[in-house]
Design a protein around this nucleic acid. Structure first.
Length: 558
DNA sequence: CATCCTTTGAAGATG
DNA sequence: CATCTTCAAAGGATG
Protein backbone atom coordinates (compact mmCIF):
# COMPACT_ATOMS: atom_id res chain seq x y z
CA UNK A 1 0.00 0.00 0.00
CA UNK A 2 0.57 2.94 -0.48
CA UNK A 3 1.26 4.18 2.40
CA UNK A 4 4.19 3.60 2.94
CA UNK A 5 6.34 4.14 1.58
CA UNK A 6 8.55 2.37 0.37
CA UNK A 7 10.33 3.92 2.59
CA UNK A 8 7.67 3.68 4.73
CA UNK A 9 6.99 0.32 3.92
CA UNK A 10 9.88 -0.48 5.45
CA UNK A 11 9.24 1.21 8.37
CA UNK A 12 7.77 -1.85 9.36
CA UNK A 13 10.35 -4.06 8.42
CA UNK A 14 13.40 -3.51 6.59
CA UNK A 15 14.11 -0.31 8.08
CA UNK A 16 13.91 -1.57 11.47
CA UNK A 17 16.40 -4.04 10.93
CA UNK A 18 18.57 -1.67 9.34
CA UNK A 19 18.66 0.17 12.43
CA UNK A 20 20.00 -2.67 14.22
CA UNK A 21 22.82 -2.93 11.91
CA UNK A 22 23.71 0.54 12.00
CA UNK A 23 26.25 0.02 14.53
CA UNK A 24 28.21 -1.95 12.24
CA UNK A 25 28.42 0.60 9.61
CA UNK A 26 25.94 2.05 7.45
CA UNK A 27 27.97 2.08 4.45
CA UNK A 28 28.74 -1.46 4.53
CA UNK A 29 25.28 -2.18 5.09
CA UNK A 30 24.26 -0.26 2.19
CA UNK A 31 26.72 -1.78 -0.02
CA UNK A 32 26.05 -5.17 1.09
CA UNK A 33 22.50 -4.67 0.58
CA UNK A 34 22.99 -3.57 -2.87
CA UNK A 35 25.12 -6.46 -3.56
CA UNK A 36 22.69 -8.84 -2.20
CA UNK A 37 20.01 -7.10 -3.97
CA UNK A 38 21.69 -7.60 -7.19
CA UNK A 39 22.23 -11.11 -6.49
CA UNK A 40 18.70 -11.52 -5.62
CA UNK A 41 17.66 -9.85 -8.67
CA UNK A 42 19.69 -12.16 -10.65
CA UNK A 43 18.09 -14.99 -8.99
CA UNK A 44 14.76 -13.68 -9.59
CA UNK A 45 15.60 -13.07 -13.05
CA UNK A 46 16.88 -16.44 -13.60
CA UNK A 47 13.90 -17.86 -11.99
CA UNK A 48 11.76 -15.96 -14.25
CA UNK A 49 13.65 -17.09 -17.15
CA UNK A 50 13.32 -20.56 -16.05
CA UNK A 51 9.75 -20.17 -15.94
CA UNK A 52 9.88 -20.10 -19.45
CA UNK A 53 8.74 -17.25 -20.63
CA UNK A 54 11.04 -14.64 -21.17
CA UNK A 55 13.64 -14.83 -23.56
CA UNK A 56 13.39 -11.50 -24.85
CA UNK A 57 12.43 -10.01 -21.69
CA UNK A 58 15.52 -11.04 -19.97
CA UNK A 59 17.52 -8.37 -21.53
CA UNK A 60 14.91 -5.91 -20.77
CA UNK A 61 14.62 -7.03 -17.33
CA UNK A 62 18.18 -6.32 -16.76
CA UNK A 63 17.80 -2.82 -17.66
CA UNK A 64 14.79 -2.57 -15.65
CA UNK A 65 16.55 -3.99 -12.75
CA UNK A 66 19.20 -1.50 -12.85
CA UNK A 67 16.82 1.21 -12.51
CA UNK A 68 15.45 0.02 -9.32
CA UNK A 69 18.81 -0.60 -7.96
CA UNK A 70 19.94 2.78 -8.58
CA UNK A 71 17.09 4.29 -6.93
CA UNK A 72 17.39 1.91 -4.20
CA UNK A 73 20.44 3.49 -2.88
CA UNK A 74 18.69 6.71 -2.53
CA UNK A 75 15.82 5.12 -1.01
CA UNK A 76 17.88 3.40 1.46
CA UNK A 77 19.66 6.37 2.61
CA UNK A 78 16.45 8.04 3.03
CA UNK A 79 15.09 5.15 4.80
CA UNK A 80 17.90 5.04 7.14
CA UNK A 81 17.42 8.49 8.16
CA UNK A 82 13.89 7.75 8.60
CA UNK A 83 14.72 4.82 10.60
CA UNK A 84 16.44 6.75 13.14
CA UNK A 85 13.43 8.76 13.66
CA UNK A 86 11.32 5.85 13.54
CA UNK A 87 13.31 4.03 16.02
CA UNK A 88 13.22 6.90 18.33
CA UNK A 89 9.57 7.11 17.93
CA UNK A 90 9.23 3.51 18.56
CA UNK A 91 11.03 3.74 21.73
CA UNK A 92 8.84 6.42 22.87
CA UNK A 93 5.78 4.69 21.93
CA UNK A 94 6.93 1.64 23.23
CA UNK A 95 3.81 0.29 23.50
CA UNK A 96 2.33 3.48 24.10
CA UNK A 97 0.88 3.47 20.79
CA UNK A 98 -0.88 0.31 21.07
CA UNK A 99 -1.25 0.35 24.68
CA UNK A 100 -2.49 3.71 24.92
CA UNK A 101 -5.40 3.98 27.14
CA UNK A 102 -7.40 5.09 24.32
CA UNK A 103 -6.68 2.09 22.56
CA UNK A 104 -9.57 0.16 23.62
CA UNK A 105 -11.70 2.72 22.20
CA UNK A 106 -9.76 2.74 19.09
CA UNK A 107 -8.83 6.17 18.79
CA UNK A 108 -9.36 7.06 15.35
CA UNK A 109 -7.80 10.30 15.48
CA UNK A 110 -4.47 10.05 14.11
CA UNK A 111 -1.78 12.43 13.96
CA UNK A 112 1.00 12.68 11.69
CA UNK A 113 4.24 11.52 12.65
CA UNK A 114 6.80 14.09 12.75
CA UNK A 115 9.68 12.25 11.58
CA UNK A 116 10.16 12.55 8.05
CA UNK A 117 13.17 11.35 6.59
CA UNK A 118 13.14 12.81 3.41
CA UNK A 119 12.87 16.17 4.59
CA UNK A 120 15.84 15.83 6.53
CA UNK A 121 17.95 15.52 3.75
CA UNK A 122 18.27 15.45 0.39
CA UNK A 123 16.60 14.34 -2.46
CA UNK A 124 14.31 11.62 -2.70
CA UNK A 125 14.58 9.34 -5.52
CA UNK A 126 11.62 8.83 -7.60
CA UNK A 127 11.16 5.48 -6.30
CA UNK A 128 11.34 6.69 -2.84
CA UNK A 129 8.80 9.16 -3.66
CA UNK A 130 6.62 6.58 -4.87
CA UNK A 131 6.77 4.87 -1.67
CA UNK A 132 6.26 7.89 0.30
CA UNK A 133 3.09 8.61 -1.17
CA UNK A 134 1.67 5.76 0.48
CA UNK A 135 2.32 6.65 3.84
CA UNK A 136 -0.09 8.24 5.87
CA UNK A 137 1.37 9.90 8.65
CA UNK A 138 -1.29 9.62 11.03
CA UNK A 139 -0.87 8.23 14.36
CA UNK A 140 -3.36 7.38 16.82
CA UNK A 141 -3.52 9.93 19.27
CA UNK A 142 -2.71 8.57 22.44
CA UNK A 143 -4.33 10.39 24.98
CA UNK A 144 -1.50 10.17 27.08
CA UNK A 145 1.94 10.85 26.96
CA UNK A 146 3.02 8.21 24.82
CA UNK A 147 3.95 10.08 21.83
CA UNK A 148 4.49 13.28 23.32
CA UNK A 149 7.65 13.95 21.71
CA UNK A 150 6.54 13.61 18.33
CA UNK A 151 3.39 15.32 18.77
CA UNK A 152 4.02 17.76 21.40
CA UNK A 153 5.00 20.43 19.14
CA UNK A 154 1.62 20.97 18.04
CA UNK A 155 -1.24 20.61 20.14
CA UNK A 156 -3.19 21.85 17.35
CA UNK A 157 -3.39 18.63 15.70
CA UNK A 158 -5.56 17.45 18.38
CA UNK A 159 -8.05 19.90 17.55
CA UNK A 160 -7.76 19.16 14.04
CA UNK A 161 -7.59 22.50 13.07
CA UNK A 162 -4.32 22.90 11.70
CA UNK A 163 -2.03 20.44 10.62
CA UNK A 164 0.77 20.18 12.71
CA UNK A 165 3.77 21.35 11.31
CA UNK A 166 5.64 18.50 10.65
CA UNK A 167 8.91 18.29 9.81
CA UNK A 168 8.49 15.34 8.05
CA UNK A 169 5.53 13.47 7.87
CA UNK A 170 6.64 10.12 8.41
CA UNK A 171 4.22 7.70 7.94
CA UNK A 172 3.11 5.44 10.45
CA UNK A 173 2.59 1.96 9.48
CA UNK A 174 -0.85 2.07 10.61
CA UNK A 175 -1.59 4.84 8.45
CA UNK A 176 -3.22 2.87 5.88
CA UNK A 177 -6.18 3.16 7.81
CA UNK A 178 -6.97 6.01 5.94
CA UNK A 179 -5.94 5.74 2.55
CA UNK A 180 -4.18 3.15 1.12
CA UNK A 181 -4.16 3.62 -2.12
CA UNK A 182 -2.44 5.29 -4.10
CA UNK A 183 -0.29 4.59 -6.35
CA UNK A 184 1.94 7.35 -7.15
CA UNK A 185 2.38 10.87 -6.57
CA UNK A 186 1.26 12.94 -9.22
CA UNK A 187 3.76 14.79 -11.07
CA UNK A 188 2.60 17.80 -9.43
CA UNK A 189 3.44 16.59 -6.12
CA UNK A 190 6.12 18.49 -4.57
CA UNK A 191 9.39 16.90 -4.52
CA UNK A 192 9.83 15.05 -1.48
CA UNK A 193 12.94 16.65 -0.52
CA UNK A 194 11.28 19.89 -0.67
CA UNK A 195 8.56 18.45 1.17
CA UNK A 196 5.14 19.47 0.67
CA UNK A 197 5.35 21.69 3.45
CA UNK A 198 5.21 25.24 2.83
CA UNK A 199 6.67 27.75 5.02
CA UNK A 200 4.32 29.62 7.00
CA UNK A 201 4.91 33.20 6.45
CA UNK A 202 4.26 34.00 9.94
CA UNK A 203 6.14 31.45 11.72
CA UNK A 204 8.50 30.53 9.10
CA UNK A 205 7.73 27.09 9.96
CA UNK A 206 6.75 24.78 7.35
CA UNK A 207 3.17 24.14 7.22
CA UNK A 208 1.30 21.61 5.47
CA UNK A 209 0.20 22.73 2.20
CA UNK A 210 -3.28 23.47 1.70
CA UNK A 211 -5.13 20.57 0.58
CA UNK A 212 -6.27 22.27 -2.39
CA UNK A 213 -2.76 22.68 -3.40
CA UNK A 214 -1.69 19.32 -2.62
CA UNK A 215 -4.17 16.78 -2.70
CA UNK A 216 -7.59 17.08 -3.61
CA UNK A 217 -8.31 14.16 -1.68
CA UNK A 218 -9.42 15.90 1.22
CA UNK A 219 -11.19 18.90 0.24
CA UNK A 220 -11.23 21.43 2.72
CA UNK A 221 -14.10 21.54 4.69
CA UNK A 222 -14.48 24.66 6.32
CA UNK A 223 -15.61 24.48 9.57
CA UNK A 224 -15.99 21.12 10.35
CA UNK A 225 -14.23 18.82 12.32
CA UNK A 226 -12.85 17.55 9.37
CA UNK A 227 -11.82 20.77 8.36
CA UNK A 228 -8.40 19.94 8.74
CA UNK A 229 -6.43 19.56 5.92
CA UNK A 230 -4.80 16.48 6.54
CA UNK A 231 -1.26 17.09 7.14
CA UNK A 232 -0.44 14.46 4.86
CA UNK A 233 -2.85 15.46 2.43
CA UNK A 234 -0.20 15.73 -0.02
CA UNK A 235 0.35 12.17 0.48
CA UNK A 236 -2.88 11.26 -0.77
CA UNK A 237 -3.04 9.28 -3.71
CA UNK A 238 -3.75 10.75 -6.76
CA UNK A 239 -4.94 7.99 -8.53
CA UNK A 240 -7.49 7.25 -6.81
CA UNK A 241 -7.95 4.29 -5.26
CA UNK A 242 -8.79 4.33 -1.84
CA UNK A 243 -8.74 1.49 0.21
CA UNK A 244 -12.12 0.84 -0.78
CA UNK A 245 -12.58 2.30 -3.99
CA UNK A 246 -14.72 5.14 -3.99
CA UNK A 247 -16.79 6.32 -6.65
CA UNK A 248 -15.95 9.66 -7.70
CA UNK A 249 -18.49 12.03 -7.30
CA UNK A 250 -20.45 10.01 -5.26
CA UNK A 251 -20.83 10.21 -1.76
CA UNK A 252 -21.04 13.59 -0.71
CA UNK A 253 -21.70 12.51 2.59
CA UNK A 254 -19.67 9.69 2.75
CA UNK A 255 -19.74 8.74 6.13
CA UNK A 256 -22.93 8.60 7.70
CA UNK A 257 -23.01 10.08 10.88
CA UNK A 258 -22.48 7.31 13.08
CA UNK A 259 -22.15 7.52 16.53
CA UNK A 260 -18.69 8.41 16.75
CA UNK A 261 -16.60 9.82 19.31
CA UNK A 262 -14.52 12.73 18.74
CA UNK A 263 -11.60 10.83 17.75
CA UNK A 264 -13.54 8.79 15.44
CA UNK A 265 -15.12 11.69 13.87
CA UNK A 266 -11.86 13.15 13.21
CA UNK A 267 -10.73 10.15 11.55
CA UNK A 268 -13.65 10.02 9.46
CA UNK A 269 -13.56 13.54 8.67
CA UNK A 270 -10.10 13.35 7.60
CA UNK A 271 -10.79 10.50 5.46
CA UNK A 272 -14.06 11.39 4.22
CA UNK A 273 -15.08 14.62 5.31
CA UNK A 274 -18.69 15.11 5.53
CA UNK A 275 -18.14 18.39 4.26
CA UNK A 276 -16.38 17.31 1.41
CA UNK A 277 -17.57 19.41 -1.08
CA UNK A 278 -18.29 18.19 -4.32
CA UNK A 279 -15.31 17.98 -6.14
CA UNK A 280 -14.53 18.68 -9.48
CA UNK A 281 -16.21 16.55 -11.79
CA UNK A 282 -13.70 14.32 -12.94
CA UNK A 283 -11.26 14.24 -10.33
CA UNK A 284 -10.53 10.97 -9.04
CA UNK A 285 -9.41 11.77 -5.76
CA UNK A 286 -11.03 14.57 -4.91
CA UNK A 287 -14.21 14.14 -3.97
CA UNK A 288 -15.48 13.52 -0.90
CA UNK A 289 -14.63 10.27 -0.37
CA UNK A 290 -16.86 8.08 1.22
CA UNK A 291 -15.54 5.17 2.79
CA UNK A 292 -13.43 3.44 0.40
CA UNK A 293 -15.30 0.39 0.94
CA UNK A 294 -18.17 1.60 -0.95
CA UNK A 295 -18.16 0.74 -4.47
CA UNK A 296 -20.85 1.35 -6.76
CA UNK A 297 -22.28 -1.66 -8.21
CA UNK A 298 -21.48 -0.69 -11.59
CA UNK A 299 -17.96 -0.14 -11.20
CA UNK A 300 -15.85 -1.93 -9.15
CA UNK A 301 -12.81 -0.15 -8.57
CA UNK A 302 -12.06 2.48 -10.82
CA UNK A 303 -13.67 5.58 -10.36
CA UNK A 304 -15.88 5.92 -13.07
CA UNK A 305 -18.61 7.99 -13.42
CA UNK A 306 -21.15 6.23 -11.71
CA UNK A 307 -23.30 7.71 -9.26
CA UNK A 308 -24.33 6.67 -6.07
CA UNK A 309 -27.62 6.19 -4.78
CA UNK A 310 -29.29 9.33 -3.89
CA UNK A 311 -29.64 8.31 -0.47
CA UNK A 312 -26.04 8.30 0.00
CA UNK A 313 -25.72 11.57 -1.41
CA UNK A 314 -27.73 13.25 0.97
CA UNK A 315 -27.05 12.60 4.32
CA UNK A 316 -27.96 9.29 4.91
CA UNK A 317 -27.04 8.77 8.33
CA UNK A 318 -27.09 5.22 8.09
CA UNK A 319 -24.84 3.27 6.08
CA UNK A 320 -25.50 2.35 2.79
CA UNK A 321 -28.98 2.51 2.61
CA UNK A 322 -30.09 -0.17 0.74
CA UNK A 323 -32.02 1.19 -1.94
CA UNK A 324 -33.27 -1.71 -3.38
CA UNK A 325 -31.70 -1.41 -6.56
CA UNK A 326 -28.49 -0.15 -6.19
CA UNK A 327 -27.00 -0.89 -3.13
CA UNK A 328 -23.53 0.10 -3.32
CA UNK A 329 -21.16 -2.62 -3.07
CA UNK A 330 -19.42 -2.38 0.16
CA UNK A 331 -16.19 -4.14 0.13
CA UNK A 332 -14.82 -6.17 2.85
CA UNK A 333 -12.42 -4.50 5.07
CA UNK A 334 -8.90 -5.41 4.33
CA UNK A 335 -7.21 -7.84 6.53
CA UNK A 336 -3.76 -7.44 7.85
CA UNK A 337 -2.11 -9.11 4.99
CA UNK A 338 -4.04 -7.16 2.47
CA UNK A 339 -3.00 -4.00 4.12
CA UNK A 340 0.51 -5.14 4.04
CA UNK A 341 0.22 -5.96 0.42
CA UNK A 342 -1.08 -2.65 -0.46
CA UNK A 343 1.64 -1.01 1.31
CA UNK A 344 4.45 -3.08 0.08
CA UNK A 345 3.44 -4.01 -3.34
CA UNK A 346 4.90 -1.02 -5.01
CA UNK A 347 8.11 -1.57 -3.31
CA UNK A 348 8.34 -5.12 -4.27
CA UNK A 349 7.48 -4.32 -7.78
CA UNK A 350 10.18 -1.76 -7.91
CA UNK A 351 12.72 -4.07 -6.49
CA UNK A 352 11.89 -7.06 -8.43
CA UNK A 353 10.71 -5.66 -11.62
CA UNK A 354 8.05 -8.20 -11.63
CA UNK A 355 4.73 -7.22 -12.75
CA UNK A 356 2.51 -10.09 -12.32
CA UNK A 357 0.50 -9.77 -9.29
CA UNK A 358 0.50 -13.42 -8.65
CA UNK A 359 4.23 -13.42 -8.44
CA UNK A 360 4.31 -10.31 -6.41
CA UNK A 361 1.86 -11.76 -4.07
CA UNK A 362 3.96 -14.76 -3.54
CA UNK A 363 6.80 -12.60 -2.57
CA UNK A 364 4.63 -10.57 -0.36
CA UNK A 365 3.39 -13.67 1.27
CA UNK A 366 6.87 -14.72 2.08
CA UNK A 367 7.78 -11.37 3.29
CA UNK A 368 4.80 -11.37 5.42
CA UNK A 369 5.95 -14.46 7.10
CA UNK A 370 9.31 -13.05 7.63
CA UNK A 371 8.01 -10.02 9.34
CA UNK A 372 8.61 -9.78 12.97
CA UNK A 373 5.83 -10.13 15.32
CA UNK A 374 5.73 -6.53 16.02
CA UNK A 375 5.61 -5.72 12.45
CA UNK A 376 2.81 -8.03 11.78
CA UNK A 377 1.10 -6.84 14.86
CA UNK A 378 0.96 -3.43 13.39
CA UNK A 379 -0.93 -4.69 10.49
CA UNK A 380 -3.19 -6.80 12.52
CA UNK A 381 -3.92 -3.86 14.59
CA UNK A 382 -4.52 -1.74 11.63
CA UNK A 383 -6.77 -4.32 10.15
CA UNK A 384 -8.66 -4.54 13.32
CA UNK A 385 -9.22 -0.86 13.33
CA UNK A 386 -10.22 -1.01 9.79
CA UNK A 387 -12.78 -3.61 10.55
CA UNK A 388 -14.03 -1.67 13.40
CA UNK A 389 -14.38 1.42 11.40
CA UNK A 390 -16.04 -0.53 8.72
CA UNK A 391 -18.49 -1.96 11.09
CA UNK A 392 -19.28 1.41 12.43
CA UNK A 393 -19.75 2.81 9.05
CA UNK A 394 -21.78 -0.03 7.84
CA UNK A 395 -23.38 -1.56 10.78
CA UNK A 396 -25.59 -3.82 8.92
CA UNK A 397 -23.07 -4.98 6.47
CA UNK A 398 -22.12 -8.54 6.38
CA UNK A 399 -19.48 -10.26 4.42
CA UNK A 400 -22.22 -12.40 3.16
CA UNK A 401 -23.52 -9.47 1.27
CA UNK A 402 -20.72 -9.76 -1.12
CA UNK A 403 -21.00 -13.39 -1.65
CA UNK A 404 -21.60 -14.11 -5.16
CA UNK A 405 -20.69 -10.72 -6.31
CA UNK A 406 -17.40 -11.82 -7.43
CA UNK A 407 -17.55 -14.23 -10.12
CA UNK A 408 -17.39 -17.48 -8.59
CA UNK A 409 -14.06 -18.87 -8.37
CA UNK A 410 -13.94 -22.26 -9.45
CA UNK A 411 -12.25 -24.01 -6.81
CA UNK A 412 -13.50 -27.27 -7.69
CA UNK A 413 -10.37 -29.18 -7.48
CA UNK A 414 -9.17 -28.02 -4.29
CA UNK A 415 -10.50 -30.72 -2.17
CA UNK A 416 -8.73 -33.84 -2.66
CA UNK A 417 -5.74 -32.82 -4.24
CA UNK A 418 -4.69 -35.82 -5.97
CA UNK A 419 -1.82 -35.62 -8.19
CA UNK A 420 -4.21 -35.69 -10.92
CA UNK A 421 -5.69 -32.58 -9.84
CA UNK A 422 -2.54 -30.87 -10.35
CA UNK A 423 -2.29 -31.97 -13.80
CA UNK A 424 -5.75 -30.90 -14.33
CA UNK A 425 -5.21 -27.57 -13.02
CA UNK A 426 -3.82 -25.38 -15.52
CA UNK A 427 -0.20 -25.67 -15.67
CA UNK A 428 -0.07 -22.22 -14.52
CA UNK A 429 -1.19 -23.12 -11.19
CA UNK A 430 1.63 -25.41 -10.78
CA UNK A 431 4.05 -22.87 -11.79
CA UNK A 432 5.81 -21.20 -9.13
CA UNK A 433 6.19 -17.70 -10.12
CA UNK A 434 9.10 -17.16 -8.00
CA UNK A 435 10.89 -20.27 -7.33
CA UNK A 436 13.43 -18.79 -5.24
CA UNK A 437 13.02 -16.14 -2.81
CA UNK A 438 15.21 -13.53 -3.21
CA UNK A 439 15.75 -10.27 -2.17
CA UNK A 440 12.35 -9.70 -2.91
CA UNK A 441 11.59 -11.65 0.04
CA UNK A 442 14.08 -9.76 1.69
CA UNK A 443 14.13 -11.65 4.68
CA UNK A 444 16.78 -9.51 5.82
CA UNK A 445 14.69 -6.69 6.58
CA UNK A 446 12.33 -8.54 8.56
CA UNK A 447 14.90 -10.43 10.34
CA UNK A 448 16.50 -7.39 11.43
CA UNK A 449 13.44 -5.96 12.82
CA UNK A 450 12.62 -9.13 14.35
CA UNK A 451 15.83 -9.02 16.02
CA UNK A 452 15.54 -5.83 17.63
CA UNK A 453 12.03 -6.16 18.47
CA UNK A 454 12.48 -8.31 21.43
CA UNK A 455 14.43 -5.69 23.04
CA UNK A 456 11.75 -3.25 22.71
CA UNK A 457 8.92 -3.35 24.97
CA UNK A 458 6.91 -2.85 22.01
CA UNK A 459 6.95 -6.47 21.79
CA UNK A 460 3.98 -6.30 23.76
CA UNK A 461 2.80 -4.29 21.11
CA UNK A 462 1.10 -7.06 19.91
CA UNK A 463 -1.44 -4.98 21.36
CA UNK A 464 -2.60 -6.82 24.22
CA UNK A 465 -4.94 -4.16 24.94
CA UNK A 466 -6.91 -4.69 21.97
CA UNK A 467 -10.26 -5.49 23.13
CA UNK A 468 -11.50 -7.76 20.66
CA UNK A 469 -10.01 -10.35 18.69
CA UNK A 470 -6.76 -9.72 19.99
CA UNK A 471 -6.01 -13.08 21.11
CA UNK A 472 -6.60 -14.82 18.03
CA UNK A 473 -5.06 -12.16 16.04
CA UNK A 474 -2.03 -11.98 18.02
CA UNK A 475 -1.66 -15.55 18.15
CA UNK A 476 -1.87 -15.90 14.51
CA UNK A 477 1.09 -14.04 13.62
CA UNK A 478 2.99 -15.96 16.06
CA UNK A 479 1.96 -19.31 15.19
CA UNK A 480 2.82 -18.97 11.68
CA UNK A 481 3.32 -22.14 10.04
CA UNK A 482 3.65 -22.36 6.52
CA UNK A 483 0.61 -23.45 4.92
CA UNK A 484 0.56 -26.57 3.15
CA UNK A 485 2.70 -26.00 0.33
CA UNK A 486 0.65 -28.05 -1.84
CA UNK A 487 0.04 -25.42 -4.28
CA UNK A 488 3.42 -24.18 -4.79
CA UNK A 489 5.78 -26.77 -3.75
CA UNK A 490 3.76 -29.77 -3.99
CA UNK A 491 6.37 -31.59 -5.78
CA UNK A 492 8.53 -32.07 -2.90
CA UNK A 493 8.47 -31.36 0.66
CA UNK A 494 10.70 -28.60 1.57
CA UNK A 495 12.69 -28.62 4.62
CA UNK A 496 12.34 -25.55 6.61
CA UNK A 497 14.17 -24.19 9.44
CA UNK A 498 12.17 -23.24 12.36
CA UNK A 499 13.48 -20.46 14.31
CA UNK A 500 12.08 -20.07 17.67
CA UNK A 501 10.88 -16.66 17.87
CA UNK A 502 9.80 -16.60 21.32
CA UNK A 503 11.04 -13.74 23.20
CA UNK A 504 13.30 -15.46 25.44
CA UNK A 505 14.09 -12.49 27.41
CA UNK A 506 11.24 -10.20 27.50
CA UNK A 507 8.26 -12.35 27.41
CA UNK A 508 8.58 -15.60 29.02
CA UNK A 509 5.01 -16.26 28.71
CA UNK A 510 5.09 -15.95 25.06
CA UNK A 511 4.99 -19.21 23.38
CA UNK A 512 7.83 -20.04 21.24
CA UNK A 513 7.06 -19.53 17.74
CA UNK A 514 8.48 -21.15 14.85
CA UNK A 515 9.10 -19.24 11.82
CA UNK A 516 9.42 -21.41 8.88
CA UNK A 517 11.80 -20.29 6.34
CA UNK A 518 11.29 -21.33 2.86
CA UNK A 519 13.87 -23.53 1.57
CA UNK A 520 14.82 -21.11 -1.01
CA UNK A 521 15.50 -18.53 1.52
CA UNK A 522 17.40 -20.83 3.51
CA UNK A 523 19.47 -21.66 0.67
CA UNK A 524 20.14 -18.18 -0.08
CA UNK A 525 20.93 -16.83 3.21
CA UNK A 526 22.37 -19.79 4.90
CA UNK A 527 23.47 -22.41 2.59
CA UNK A 528 25.24 -20.36 0.14
CA UNK A 529 27.89 -17.98 1.02
CA UNK A 530 26.02 -15.25 2.65
CA UNK A 531 26.49 -11.81 1.53
CA UNK A 532 27.75 -9.42 4.02
CA UNK A 533 24.29 -8.33 4.50
CA UNK A 534 23.11 -11.73 5.17
CA UNK A 535 25.91 -12.41 7.42
CA UNK A 536 25.02 -9.49 9.43
CA UNK A 537 21.55 -10.70 9.58
CA UNK A 538 22.60 -14.08 10.62
CA UNK A 539 24.84 -12.69 13.11
CA UNK A 540 22.09 -10.78 14.64
CA UNK A 541 19.97 -13.74 14.56
CA UNK A 542 22.35 -15.71 16.50
CA UNK A 543 22.82 -13.07 18.96
CA UNK A 544 19.23 -12.89 19.44
CA UNK A 545 18.45 -16.40 19.66
CA UNK A 546 21.53 -17.75 21.00
CA UNK A 547 19.67 -19.56 23.56
CA UNK A 548 17.31 -20.94 21.10
CA UNK A 549 18.88 -23.29 18.77
CA UNK A 550 17.72 -23.57 15.31
CA UNK A 551 16.03 -26.69 14.55
CA UNK A 552 15.66 -28.22 11.26
CA UNK A 553 12.22 -29.33 10.69
CA UNK A 554 10.89 -31.24 7.90
CA UNK A 555 7.57 -30.24 6.79
CA UNK A 556 4.89 -32.57 7.42
CA UNK A 557 3.89 -34.19 4.32
CA UNK A 558 0.47 -33.70 3.32
C1' DC B 1 -14.13 -8.78 -21.61
C1' DA B 2 -14.28 -11.92 -17.81
C1' DT B 3 -11.51 -14.93 -15.12
C1' DC B 4 -7.53 -16.83 -13.43
C1' DC B 5 -3.60 -16.67 -10.64
C1' DT B 6 -1.50 -15.81 -6.01
C1' DT B 7 -1.09 -14.49 -1.16
C1' DT B 8 -3.21 -14.21 4.01
C1' DG B 9 -6.92 -13.41 6.93
C1' DA B 10 -11.78 -12.71 8.29
C1' DA B 11 -16.16 -14.15 8.20
C1' DG B 12 -19.92 -16.81 6.54
C1' DA B 13 -21.56 -21.39 5.36
C1' DT B 14 -21.62 -26.11 6.01
C1' DG B 15 -21.23 -30.61 8.25
C1' DC C 1 -16.79 -26.98 16.90
C1' DA C 2 -14.09 -27.95 12.80
C1' DT C 3 -13.68 -27.40 8.14
C1' DC C 4 -14.59 -25.32 3.79
C1' DT C 5 -15.71 -21.12 0.83
C1' DT C 6 -15.68 -16.41 -0.44
C1' DC C 7 -13.82 -12.23 -0.82
C1' DA C 8 -10.74 -8.54 -0.05
C1' DA C 9 -6.08 -6.14 -3.77
C1' DA C 10 -3.69 -6.20 -7.98
C1' DG C 11 -2.44 -6.63 -12.60
C1' DG C 12 -0.46 -9.60 -16.14
C1' DA C 13 -1.95 -13.77 -18.37
C1' DT C 14 -5.36 -16.38 -20.47
C1' DG C 15 -9.58 -18.03 -22.83
Amino acid sequence: MPQLNGGGGDDLGANDEMISFKDEGEQEEKISENVSAERDLDDVKSSLVNESENNSSSSDSEQAERRPLLTRADTESYEKTRDYFHEALRRQQDGGFFKSPHYPGYPFLMIPDLTNPYLSNGSLSPSARTYLQMKWPLLDVPGSAGLKDSRSPTPGHLSNKVPVVQHAPHVHPLTPLITYSNEHFSPGTPPSHLSPEILDPKTGIPRTPHPSELSPYYPLSPGAVGSIAHPLSWFMPQQGQHMYSIPPGGFRHPYPALAMNASMSSLVSSRFSPHMVTPPPHSLHQTGIPHPAIVSPAIKQEPGGEHISPSMHAKSPVPPKKEEDKKPHIKKPLNAFMLYMKEMRAKVVAECTLKESAAINQILGRRWHSLSREEQAKYYELARKERQLHSQLYPGWSARDNYGKRKKRKRENKPDSKPEDFSIRSKKQCVQYLPSEKMCDSPASSHGSMLDSPATPSAALASPAAPAATHSEQAQPLSLTTKPEGRMHHHFSLPTISIPIGTSGSQPSTPILTRPIPFTSLHHSMLSPPSPFHQAALHSHHALFQSQPLSLVTKPTE
